[in-house]
């Protein structure tokens, strides 16, 4: 189990590295001439590409962050394995729900 968590942590890190760079690059590029909510939504609404990019981002962050949180809770928080696993799972679900909700808000329905 631990070896699998380690593998998944490394794989998600490999996926996250380019995603974070693109995310930061887009921020810098998008705000060059000022930025409005309308401008963002014009780009993202109905875009399958951005839905896949940020959907994947959210999914990877949820898994990667939760595994890291589990290790930090055990090493620095003095928590047992069971408590750490439960808190990490809750954090993963929270990140997943909040993240996917945000992705849906910019690429899917909802008032602009």
């Amino acid at each position: 189990m631990t070896a699998r968590l380690f593998l998944v942590q490394r794989l998600t890190a490999v996926i996250l590295a380019p995603l974070v760079l693109v995310h930061l690059g887009v921020i810098v590029y998008a705000v060059r001439n000022g930025l409005s909510a309308g401008e963002i939504l014009d780009r993202t609404r109905g875009s399958l590409g951005w839905a896949a990019f940020y959907g994947g981002f959210v999914l990877t962050v949820s898994v990667h962050g939760a595994i890291g949180l589990r290790a930090a809770l055990i090493e620095w928080g003095g928590q047992g394995r069971r408590t750490a696993a439960r808190v990490a799972l809750a954090a993963a679900l929270l990140l997943l729900v909040l993240g996917l909700r945000a992705v849906w808000a910019v690429v899917g329905g909802g008032a602009p």
């Binding site: 189990m1 631990t2 070896a3 380690f6 394995r81």
Partner: peptide
């Protein structure tokens, strides 16, 4: 590898 990679092993 199984023993060294278990919980509290090399992954930490």
């Amino acid at each position: 590898l199984a023993a060294a990679g278990a919980e509290a092993g090399c992954g930490n």
